[in-house]
Design a protein around this nucleic acid. Structure first.
Length: 671
DNA sequence: GTGGATGAG
DNA sequence: CGCTCATCCAC
């Protein structure tokens, strides 16, 4: 696709309409005459005429990460290897004609002195990924953790450098930056006289701003005038570090040749607008931050700062099925070809919402830049199996490897927030060339998320997905294990129970130890009716109740430590009661049941749950004392705390897609 | 909630 | 291209 904007026309004489798409449709709102209202209010969102957005990405990011990590001279050619392929090639290496997806051998042939770093990997049992010269894809899994961490550092610098800007991490090496607010602030700082509407202004706050000062585009990078968008500059004029700082969409006079810097003040005409000023300030801020990142972290970046159009093929959303569908529907191959289709025609065919696509085709992208939560909603670890696996044990092996990665990543994320809780765990497998199938299950909140806990669930899901093997042969070519629905647990309550309550068949009730009764003496005893039934087929599950019995070495003292604690305040030994999982419960009676039927969860998992429950019990017991103090006068039960999903915006008002949407039309709904 | 599909680097 | 990652959405 190319020929972006081939139908656009700029009008250097008009202050109100900067370009038109063919004759009839115009986009007046993009670049109106800027008034005091435009400047002094900041409430127009993506229709703000002073809106400036930048996209900044790191150059050959993975390669740069390795270069920085190893303290290698950035001028040396370096590639990052993943098995037999390359996943990153730095600029010096590109000079040798090496490109991504070259085979490693070819790359070395082209450049014998090439620095080759294999991406970090780990195998089952490794506590963390490591850098090895020749990891085996049959035993190891790639880890991108280091790159994720470095990425976060860069995002952090954007945020610190632009406290009032909006930063949206777009990928591991890219971020969208909304400069609209910082630019406004800067304009008011530099031109304070704009801060008040002059008394003699003809239309009050709706009067146009006075003419802008001349702009120096010097040192702001490469400027891409709007005229040139069909023939944009190439990167040959980049700074020496290979990075670029482009600004696009400035409604400039014709004096600036694409890719050249005229090196100074724009005194060419009277066509400079406040719109241009905004763009130039953003470009300047962008450059400053990029330099800071380079100096502090060692990463070079490229940025494109645009008011509304971007050069070359930089159109989002058309790279996938939508683009293909459009091309087929209209039997065209370039964006330019689609510009002949009028808005009316598109809307008649695809409904009102297709204006979104119509604008995208014209380089107008009104998407909001919105900061994403620091923690992502999901985490996925996956492994392609060059040699398809055929046995359940092999599956368990990979599940453990993937579980190790998830454990590592979740625990690392928890360094920032202890209450992080993935509500769901999912196992995907791909059999041969079939599409993926998956199974998921609730994941309990556990303070210690270990490989064993995760793998326990993974194995359970595996059995649901492929069975225990034997009878039906399989050939699995990919295994993925993921957490989803990551949110935070509020004041760490009632979590295990919530999880187990959904498995009524395994509810068991068992008081442990002779002192169990004494536990109920301290706080009030549960009056809830209890089921006295034990699990009938106890061989089916390794539930908590079996633990003390299974382990013959388990002395009484050990058992005490595992299932109880002594409260400092009341000097009571407080016991963990394994009982009915659902329903209400008193402050002192922690309830835990075994998990799923079958040998679904390992003993170790139960152990983790037990420890978790014990920790919860301590908190609750402390709460009990606290509540007693507070509520001495009132005969009220201790307020129950409730689990509340943090991102619990239950999307009730989800728009129903029109059932008439068929084929291509379904792409046209508003994003 | 579950499971599949999509887009992106 | 092969691999990895995250989100969306119909059911």
């Amino acid at each position: 696709m190319d020929a972006l904007g081939s139908g656009s026309v700029t009008n250097p004489q008009s202050n109100t309409t900067h370009w038109k798409a063919k004759a009839s449709e115009d986009f007046n709102d993009l670049t109106p005459t800027i008034t005091y209202r435009h400047l002094l209010f900041n409430n127009l969102g993506s229709r703000d005429p002073l809106r400036v957005i930048a996209l900044c990405d790191s150059d050959a990011f993975y390669a740069a990460c390795e270069q920085v990590r190893l303290g290698i001279d950035p001028a040396l050619p370096l590639v990052v290897q993943q098995w037999d392929s390359l996943i990153a090639v730095n600029y010096p290496a590109r000079k040798f004609g090496i490109s991504r997806m070259d085979k490693i051998r070819d790359a070395k042939k082209r450049c014998p002195n090439l620095v080759v770093v294999h991406v970090a990997t780990y195998k089952e049992g490794d506590a963390e990924p490591g850098y090895w010269e020749n990891p085996d894809t049959l035993t190891h899994k790639v880890s991108l953790d280091h790159y994720r961490r470095e990425s976060m550092k860069i995002i952090q610098m954007f945020k610190e450098g632009l406290p009032t800007g909006e930063i949206e991490k777009a990928s591991i090496d890219e971020a969208f930056i909304d400069f609209t607010r910082p630019v406004r602030e800067e304009i008011l700082k530099r031109y304070p006289y704009l801060g008040t509407v002059p008394p003699d202004a003809p239309n009050g706050i709706d009067s146009p701003l006075p003419p802008p000062p001349p702009i120096s585009w010097d040192g702001k990078g490469t400027i891409v005038p709007i005229h040139s968008l069909t023939n944009p500059p190439k990167a040959q004029d980049s700074p020496a570090d290979g990075a670029e700082n482009e600004a696009s969409g400035a409604r400039r006079g014709s004096s600036l040749t694409p890719g050249q810097d005229d090196g100074g003040v724009d005194d060419s005409d009277d066509s400079t607008t406040w719109h241009d000023v905004a763009l130039s300030i953003a470009a300047e801020l962008m450059l400053r931050i990029r330099e800071d990142i380079r100096d502090k972290l060692g990463y070079t970046t490229s940025a494109l700062t645009a008011s509304y159009k971007k050069p070359m093929n930089q159109i989002r959303f058309l790279g996938g099925k939508l683009g293909k569908a459009l091309a087929e529907e209209y039997d065209v191959s370039t964006v330019g070809d689609l510009l002949t289709i009028s808005l009316d025609e598109m809307q008649r065919k695809f409904g009102e919402d297709s204006i979104w696509v119509y604008e995208i085709l014209r380089g107008i992208d009104r998407s909001e830049v919105k900061e994403k939560p620091v923690v992502t909603k999901s985490m996925l670890a996956s492994k392609n199996l060059p040699q398809p696996i055929t046995k359940a044990t092999q599956g368990y092996h990979w599940i453990r490897v993937l579980a190790a990665e998830l454990a590592l990543r979740l625990n690392e994320a928890r360094e920032g927030n202890l209450a992080l809780w993935p509500k769901t765990i999912v196992l995907h497998i791909r059999q041969g060339y079939e599409t993926f199938r998956s199974k998921q299950s609730a994941f309990p909140f556990t303070r210690n998320v270990t490989v064993d806990v995760i793998a326990g669930f993974g194995e359970k899901l595996w059995r649901e997905l492929v069975g225990t093997g034997g009878s039906t042969p399989f050939k699995i070519t990919n295994v993925q294990l993921s957490f989803s629905g990551i949110g935070t647990m509020e004041s760490g309550q009632r979590t295990i129970e919530g999880f187990l309550a959904s498995r009524p068949s395994t509810k068991v009730q068992l008081d442990l130890g002779p002192e169990a009764a004494s536990a109920s003496k301290c706080p009030s005893t549960s009056k809830r009716k209890r089921s006295s039934s034990h699990v009938e087929n106890s061989h089916e599950s390794a539930t908590l109740q079996e633990l003390p019995l299974q382990n013959s070495d388990d002395t009484k003292t050990e058992r005490d430590a595992r299932f109880s604690f002594i409260c400092d305040k009341c000097r009571q030994r407080i016991w963990l009661k394994l009982g009915d999982a659902g329903g209400a419960r008193d402050a002192n009676a922690s309830t835990v049941a075994g998990a799923d039927g079958g040998q679904e969860l390992s003993v170790v998992l139960d152990d983790a749950i037990r420890e978790d429950a014990l920790a919860t019990l301590r908190l609750e017991h402390a709460d009990f004392h606290y509540a007693q103090k507070l509520a001495a006068s009132v005969d009220e039960s201790i307020p129950r705390r409730v689990i509340r999903p943090v991102n619990g915006v239950a999307s009730t008002a989800k728009k129903k897609r029109k059932t008439t949407d068929e084929g291509i039309a379904r792409f046209f709904s508003k994003k």
